[in-house]
């Protein structure tokens, strides 16, 4: 049971949680600075396409991965132009970004459908992969998954221990006070937004470079929306984001396996599991008195003076 069911299940969990985790962390960074970005789905799609196109033309997957991140940044720039520069509504801008991103990558991506490009394959980390059970779960993945193990830690240190991270948090909470304290509120918002966009882009790039090695319409498949939801689920904390992303990925993998065993529960009900569980965990946290508030200036634009 353990060898044949649980270990493969958890290994699949790590993989299916990884793109969501990248995107969730990116969105946390964005929102910490006070910008609500509902364009994650469109950004991931676009990044997945750009990464694939770069991998196909240059043959260099690492370059492609970085370019995927940059595609996310460029998309975030559009959002920033509308919301930060032009003070547009963040909700609509984000939704429009999703519509635009999904459309654009389908439009541009047509010639790339059915092509093969180099990507990341799974390999065993020496020594670590021979740890019983854990080795099979965590250390027989691809390079981008290993890379992703470090990000929450870096993220935590960045947010809590560096001046820049603390300043970004301050801007998301009280831009007025932050500005009075000599912080450049608008500039910090831009940095959080673009940095977050880069992480979201990496999540998208993961989909076309490692999760699958192909380009196809709809590759993001709703993961961007899950990331938006998981930010709230995580109470804007990277640690809980890890938990949320793996939980969601794990339940999805679990229901597929329940089907593969041959259960008699209708598949529609099984597919509800990840969504229902997300709500249940939130309720459970709430009952235990846990909770977290959004950055208090989330979604509110900073108006220029004068």
């Amino acid at each position: 049971m353990l060898e044949s069911f649980i270990v493969p299940l958890l290994a699949a969990t790590v993989q299916s949680g990884t793109p969501i985790l990248y995107a969730t962390l990116g969105e946390i960074l964005t929102e910490k600075g006070g910008i609500l970005n509902l364009g994650v789905e469109g950004m991931m799609s676009m990044a997945a396409f750009v990464a694939f196109a770069v991998a196909y033309t240059t043959g260099n997957p690492w370059l492609a991965f970085i370019c995927g991140g940059l595609a996310g940044t460029v998309m975030a720039m559009l959002h920033g132009f509308v919301c930060i520069t032009c003070l547009g509504n963040q909700v609509v801008s984000g939704l429009a970004l999703t519509i635009l991103g999904v459309g654009l990558c389908n439009f541009l991506g047509t010639p790339f459908i059915g092509l093969a490009a180099p990507g990341f394959s799974k390999f065993a980390v020496p020594v670590l992969s021979s740890i019983p059970y854990l080795g099979k779960i965590f250390f027989r993945q691809d390079a981008l998954v290993y890379f992703c193990y470090f990000i929450p830690f870096i993220f935590m240190i960045f947010m809590n221990r560096t001046r820049l991270g603390i300043a970004i948090t301050a801007v998301g909470e009280k831009p007025g006070a932050a500005a009075a304290a000599g912080l450049k509120a608008v500039k910090l918002r831009w940095m959080a937004l673009l940095g977050g966009g880069f992480l979201i882009g990496l999540g998208g790039a993961y989909l076309s470079l490692a999760y699958t090695h192909l380009w196809a319409n709809g590759l993001a498949g709703g993961r961007g929306w899950i990331a938006v939801a998981l930010v709230i689920f995580a109470f804007w904390r990277p640690g809980r984001a890890v938990f949320g992303a793996y939980l969601f990925g794990g339940v999805m993998a679990f229901q597929l396996r329940l089907q593969a065993i041959g259960t008699h529960i209708p598949s529609s009900l099984l597919l509800m599991l990840p969504y229902a569980l997300t709500i249940l965990v939130l309720i459970f946290s709430a009952v235990r008195g846990r909770g977290g508030n959004a950055p208090s200036h989330l979604g509110i634009n900073i108006e220029p003076e004068g």
């Binding site: 699949a12 299916s16 989909l207 999760y211 699958t212 192909l214 196809a216 319409n217 709809g218 590759l219 498949g221 993961r223 999805m252 993998a253 597929l256 089907q259």
Partner: peptide, 9 residues
């Protein structure tokens, strides 16, 4: 049509 989900399946 959902390449990643189908692969997971």
């Amino acid at each position: 049509y959902n390449p990643a989900l189908e692969k997971d399946a």
